[in-house]
Amino acid sequence: MTGRNTKVTMRRHPAAMVSEDDFAVEETDLPRPGDGQALVKVLYLSLDPYMRPMMDPVRSYVPHLNPGDVMPGATIAEVIESNEPELPQGTVVACSLGWQTHGVVTKDVVRVIDQNAGPVSAALSVLGMTGATAHYGLLELAKPTPDETVVVTAASGAVGGVVGQIAKIKGCRVVGIAGGAEKCRYVVDELGFDACIDYKSPDFEKQLAAATPDYVDVLFENVGGPVLDAVLGRINDHARISLCGNISDYNADEPYGLRGLRHLLMHRVTVHSFVIAEHRDYWPTAIAELSGWLAEGKIKYQEDIAEGLDSAPKAFIAMLTGGNFGKQLVNVGA
């Protein structure tokens, strides 16, 4: 098969806030599938906060990117040419091809998607890494019990929205924190949280205190910075924190750090830091239960879809600065 593969690479390491100039668009010949391989066309690309720290030349849980590397990311793709009987042409799979239009896969590195189960894009959100992150971080690590107060930061986001809905299913009181009145209305009216507080409000801490009269038993943390410190001021004895993200520091010239450390000691708080990629064996359990809740109407989700691979850098920056609403995807096949 002839044609071209378009890919987005990291042109340089960002200086604090990432910019569109930090990326480059390149074209190469289509790769050729060998024995046991299949050539796929990418349909959807997932954009996630974890990609930003990978762009910095620092030690982390995965190797950092170097100039010229293809930006990483989870994808949904369709087989267009195959030398693997178990991946016939037309098969739709979840895989990790990054920011490009085509790639070569084997059966061992993909998950076949049931195209009759709903929109295939859900395999990158509630029925993929996003859902597994929420399920594992809340139920396996924080282990909330009925009537406990659960606070979720970035509550209108892809992970936070699922976390809060699971907590409600488990009988908890759930308070979200999000940026802006529109997002807060969505969190309460559509996702069913008991309350949501706009962290941009001048009386944010006063509203947080009013929404957590019995203090906070579980915090699912996606943001860090002053928001985290404000919640630590309301933390309960023997509370549990699932530390999933720290997006407020990803583009900072000077990281804010943690200023409420004393609260962790005073209240004997347990902090669970985790990366869901290290718990792949858990994903089927999470996705199976989430699929059931989704079919029963107990879980809702929202996608923010940018059109075309060339829109990925702009959409990525918007996501990092709170400009998206829901799970950020790119319709690469547009």
Rank of each mutant, 00 (worst) to 15 (best):
residue 230 A to F: 00
residue 33 P to I: 06
residue 253 D to P: 06
residue 116 N to H: 13
residue 144 P to F: 08
residue 86 E to A: 15
residue 34 G to S: 09
residue 257 G to E: 04
residue 111 R to N: 14
residue 106 T to P: 06
residue 256 Y to E: 09
residue 155 A to R: 00
residue 281 D to H: 06
residue 39 L to P: 03
residue 277 A to E: 15
residue 151 V to P: 05
residue 200 K to F: 11
residue 286 A to M: 03
residue 89 Q to C: 13
residue 23 F to K: 01
residue 3 G to F: 00
residue 192 G to K: 06
residue 16 A to E: 12
residue 215 Y to M: 13
residue 274 F to H: 08
residue 183 K to L: 06
residue 169 I to W: 01
residue 1 M to G: 11
residue 22 D to G: 07
residue 179 G to Y: 13
residue 326 G to W: 00
residue 24 A to Q: 07
residue 63 P to N: 05
residue 311 S to E: 13
residue 213 P to K: 03
residue 146 P to N: 07
residue 17 M to H: 14
residue 8 V to A: 06
residue 67 P to Y: 02
residue 208 L to Y: 05
residue 324 N to M: 03
residue 115 Q to Y: 03
residue 143 K to Y: 04
residue 82 S to Q: 03
residue 332 V to N: 08
residue 264 L to W: 07
residue 20 E to M: 12
residue 262 R to M: 15
residue 121 S to N: 03
residue 200 K to T: 09
residue 197 I to E: 04
residue 310 D to G: 11
residue 249 D to P: 02
residue 129 M to T: 15
residue 79 V to T: 09
residue 5 N to V: 07
residue 114 D to H: 03
residue 66 N to I: 15
residue 119 P to I: 00
residue 88 P to L: 11
residue 308 G to N: 09
residue 69 D to G: 01
residue 52 R to A: 04
residue 268 R to L: 05
residue 52 R to P: 07
residue 20 E to Q: 09
residue 331 N to M: 11
residue 286 A to S: 14
residue 237 D to A: 13
residue 320 L to Q: 15
residue 323 G to C: 03
residue 214 D to K: 15
residue 144 P to K: 10
residue 87 L to D: 00
residue 39 L to R: 01
residue 83 N to S: 14
residue 307 E to Q: 15
residue 304 D to V: 07
residue 330 V to M: 05
residue 77 A to I: 10
residue 262 R to A: 15
residue 207 Q to E: 13
residue 252 A to Y: 08
residue 334 A to E: 14
residue 176 G to N: 06
residue 255 P to H: 01
residue 326 G to N: 02
residue 244 C to L: 01
residue 229 D to K: 01
residue 163 V to T: 04
residue 8 V to G: 06
residue 225 G to T: 05
residue 34 G to D: 11
residue 58 V to I: 15
residue 199 Y to Q: 09
residue 331 N to Q: 14
residue 40 V to K: 02
residue 230 A to V: 00
residue 281 D to V: 13
residue 241 I to M: 05
residue 7 K to D: 10
residue 136 Y to L: 10
residue 311 S to D: 11
residue 102 H to A: 03
residue 240 R to V: 10
residue 288 A to E: 13
residue 122 A to L: 14
residue 294 L to A: 13
residue 305 I to E: 11
residue 220 F to C: 09
residue 240 R to S: 15
residue 309 L to S: 10
residue 24 A to T: 03
residue 137 G to N: 07
residue 36 G to P: 05
residue 253 D to I: 12
residue 286 A to T: 04
residue 30 L to E: 08
residue 64 H to D: 02
residue 30 L to Y: 04
residue 65 L to Y: 13
residue 293 W to C: 08
residue 158 A to G: 10
residue 301 Y to S: 04
residue 151 V to F: 01
residue 29 D to S: 10
residue 189 D to N: 13
residue 102 H to I: 04
residue 260 G to C: 03
residue 69 D to P: 06
residue 279 H to V: 10
residue 206 K to P: 02
residue 177 I to Q: 08
residue 180 G to W: 12
residue 287 I to P: 00
